[in-house]
Amino acid sequence: MGSRNLGLFGSFIKEGWEKAFFVAKFFCVLHVTGTYLVNPVQTYGPSMLPAIDLTPSVFLSERISARSGKVTRGDIVVLRSPQNPRKFISKRLVGMEGDTITYLSSPGNSDKHETLVVPKGHIWVQGDNIYNSTDSRNFGPVPYGLVQSRIFWRVSPLKDFGPFWKK
């Protein structure tokens, strides 16, 4: 009787262990796809008007081109904010290293232009809505290492479902 009880108990443990291992594996697959392939992002705020409207919307972003250094001018990239490392921002990539950038330093107030060259290993990002965007015009060029992914597919709202490639 005792041995049979132990057997039951043992199979119970075994089953629990198998379930836990399955959950852990599932979590690992999620992590690897999210880190190396495709990651969903939710956007909000006015800085990318008119390309991305004000309603909270969900996009798919891919990690491969950011990792291999293939993002180029015109892509909408997701990057870690240089001012707060726990925050992510999505902006349009305007200049790569070595590019000469001319921008309006305070749009709406004056026509003053400023020009600079993007330093080595850095990129220049800007929101499409130049009147309401915190971007490289405030914090300067950002290191390429902050780029996380490139937005390529719109998921929600569902009526706009489809590729979102250089819009």
Binding site: K120, G121, G145
Partner: peptide, 8 residues
């Protein structure tokens, strides 16, 4: 940390 000059 990743080098600011070269992300690789």
């Amino acid at each position: 940390f990743r080098s600011p000059l070269n992300h690789k």
